Simulated assay, not measured.
Amino acid sequence: MTNLIELQHVWKRYDTGGEIVEALKDVDFRADPGEFVAVMGPSGSGKSTMLNVLGLLDTPSEGRVLLEGSDVTDLSDQEMTVQRKQFIGFIFQSFHLIPTLTALENVEVPTLFGNDPAARDRAETLLERVGLGDRLDHRPDQLSGGQKQRVAIARSLINNPRILLADEPTGNLDRKTGRSVLDLFDEIRLEDDVAVIAVTHDPQLAEFADRTVNIIDGRIQ
């Protein structure tokens, strides 16, 4: 079976002004539909760089990135954008909600530059699914941390992605709220056959994952 997303011998180097920093070193990684993978490691270990490469936000210095078996390593910026919109949803630790927009409008944001007449109905359905059907017209400052994260999750699903990439998704939440968000991830990946890849320091998240990948000094252990 073809892996949904795969990194093959990926290296990522940054020139920091005279010094070359190797953020990723010969990384091999894969994820399948419906799989929940936790990526754990200390600060500076390469977790976020790996997430950016998986999300087609950054390109490897060496190695290949495959989406459903197709090599997408050397696509143009425009082609990368198309692939991201089609395949990938992003969830950030700090939510990245627009403060002047309602929950419903925030969920719609990824669809604004296309002609998608069904976007609003889909946004409403997603907010109902994450338990916020009574908060459609609330702005972020009227929502709790857990509710903001649920809006962010609904937004990440608006384009029906195959892959969800989450950066410290429970980092700003208390343990109980974090657990409810992880329950939601579990539901999404099982019902929608979506791969969930979450970078985290939170050992609670590892309890929910099918497997945990540890990265230290840019290398998967």
Rank of each mutant, 00 (worst) to 15 (best):
D71R: 05
V72M: 04
T73N: 12
T73P: 07
D74Q: 09
L75A: 14
L75D: 03
L75S: 06
S76L: 12
D77Q: 10
Q78F: 15
E79F: 11
E79M: 06
E79K: 15
M80G: 05
M80P: 00
M80R: 15
V82C: 02
Q83H: 15
R84L: 09
R84V: 02
F87M: 13
I88T: 03
G89D: 03
G89N: 05
F90K: 00
F90H: 02
I91A: 08
I91N: 02
I91P: 03
F92Q: 05
Q93H: 12
Q93A: 10
Q93Y: 11
F95E: 01
F95W: 09
F95C: 12
H96W: 11
L97W: 09
I98H: 03
P99A: 14
L101T: 02
T102N: 10
T102D: 09
A103G: 09
E105H: 05
N106R: 10
V107L: 08
E108L: 14
E108Q: 07
E108A: 15
V109H: 08
V109Y: 13
V109P: 01
P110G: 04
P110M: 05
T111L: 12
T111N: 08
T111W: 04
T111A: 15
T111H: 01
L112P: 01
F113L: 13
F113A: 08
F113G: 03
F113R: 03
G114T: 14
N115P: 00
N115A: 06
D116H: 10
P117W: 08
P117M: 04
A118P: 00
A119C: 02
A119H: 07
R120T: 11
R120E: 05
R122E: 10
R122F: 09
R122D: 03
A123C: 12
E124R: 11
E124G: 02
T125V: 04
L126G: 06
L126W: 12
L127M: 08
E128D: 07
R129M: 14
R129Y: 13
V130I: 05
G131P: 06
L132M: 13
L132C: 13
L132V: 11
R135K: 10
L136S: 06
L136A: 11
H138S: 15
H138W: 09
R139D: 05
P140H: 10
P140D: 08
D141G: 06
Q142A: 15
S144Y: 14
G145N: 05
G145R: 00
G146T: 06
G146D: 06
G146Y: 02
K148I: 05
Q149N: 05
Q149Y: 07
Q149P: 12
R150H: 12
A152W: 00
I153T: 06
I153L: 15
I153C: 06
A154N: 02
A154E: 04
L157N: 03
I158K: 01
I158P: 00
N159I: 01
N159D: 04
N159E: 01
P161R: 02
R162E: 10
R162M: 10
I163S: 01
I163A: 03
L164A: 02
D167Q: 07
D167W: 08
D167G: 14
E168D: 10
P169V: 11
T170W: 04
T170R: 00
R175G: 04
R175M: 12
K176D: 06
T177I: 15
T177H: 10
G178K: 00
G178A: 06
R179H: 09
R179C: 02
R179M: 11
